[in-house]
Simulated scan of single mutants.
Amino acid sequence: MGSPSGPPFDPDDPDRERRDRDTEPIPRVRPDDIPGPGPGPGFADGPPFSDDAGYGDGPFGGQARSGRAWVRDPEADYQPPQISEEELAGLRVDASGMPLGPRRVLPLEDEPSSLVARYLFPTERYRGEWKRHWIHLTTPILVGIGATFVLGYLSGFLAGRDVGALTTVAVLLWFAVMGWVAWKVADWWYDRFILTNKRVMVVNGIVTRKVAMMPLARVTDMKYEQSPTGRALNYGTFVLESAGQDQALREIKNLPNPNELYLRVVEEMYEPQAVEARLGKEADEAKADDGA
């Protein structure tokens, strides 16, 4: 008996088995039966299906004969950026617009020292003063230590030879060297780098005082340099460039905390309102503490 649309049925037909195998219906594949990265045994929790795409677009390369292709939804893989609390602290501000996070610039001094106050005029606002790093005294200290050992040994040697005049000369020479060391230490103590809201200054000298200054408005470029030793001991050299040709203040060596000082100068040049807001807030907090 034959099929209404095909040839008559022939049990001896050698191609019958092949035709029956080729005409078998394609089984439907459920998403739950396909393994995937989902939490369950199937792929029900995996990426969504799409009926608009053709075969071969999914992760199985067209081998899964399902009428629905695998298409990954971009929004399904989206993860919001992870921001730590420390990073968020730098973005939070108070009512005055000042950051609530950790302070990058140390608090400013309230009043200048008597050494510096004489060089400030009434309308400018004091921002800080710094002595040079103690590394500035390396040469005098090494000379003093070396002279003590050498001249001390020489004095003892000459005293044993009963040469009193030469012993006296060695002792006087040692006093002269130590006086020079003391002079260098005093000169270091009176040497100050000063910052105001209008200019930077360097004041030095004991007998002959020298005052060099540069207006902040004329500073066109500023940088600081740190050698490996400077990075280890936290000091550096500042270089200021000005629009003028002759500069009374260009290179300042051996300044302590160069990064802190750099932030202060740059903030004073480009964000003076932020400095004023911070100073006003600190003054209010100080008054509140005094009142409490």
Rank of each mutant, 00 (worst) to 15 (best):
F149G: 08
G179R: 06
I141T: 15
V185T: 02
A176P: 01
T168Y: 09
V116F: 00
G156K: 10
K131D: 04
A159K: 06
G164Y: 11
A186Q: 14
T148A: 15
D191L: 00
W130I: 03
K184H: 10
Y153G: 07
S155C: 09
R118S: 12
W174K: 07
A165W: 14
M178G: 06
W189R: 12
H133R: 01
P122S: 10
D110Q: 12
L158W: 10
V181I: 11
T148D: 05
K184P: 02
L195D: 01
M178C: 11
L137S: 04
G156E: 13
A147G: 09
E111K: 13
G156W: 09
H136S: 14
M178N: 13
E124W: 04
L166Y: 11
N197M: 01
W183Q: 08
H133V: 00
A186W: 15
P122I: 05
T123V: 11
A170F: 03
E124S: 08
L154R: 10
I135K: 07
D110N: 07
T167Y: 04
K131C: 06
Y153M: 10
I141P: 01
L120R: 11
V169M: 11
L115N: 11
L115I: 03
D187F: 02
L158I: 07
P140A: 04
Y119M: 04
L137P: 01
L173I: 02
W134V: 13
T196Y: 00
G164E: 14
H136I: 04
I145L: 15
R125G: 08
V185K: 00
R192S: 08
V181Y: 06
R132M: 02
A159I: 03
G164S: 09
Y119V: 09
G128W: 02
A165G: 05
K131I: 06
L173N: 07
L154C: 07
G152V: 10
W183P: 02
R127A: 09
G146K: 03
V181H: 05
R132E: 07
L154D: 00
T196F: 00
F175Q: 08
T139Q: 12
E111H: 10
G128S: 03
V185W: 12
I145F: 12
V171T: 14
T168D: 10
D110L: 10
L120Y: 05
V185R: 02
L173Q: 03
I194V: 15
W188P: 01
A170V: 06
R132A: 02
L137R: 05
K184T: 07
H133K: 01
I141A: 14
R125M: 05
E129T: 01
R161G: 07
V150K: 03
G152S: 05
Y190W: 09
F175N: 05
Y190F: 13
K184Y: 05
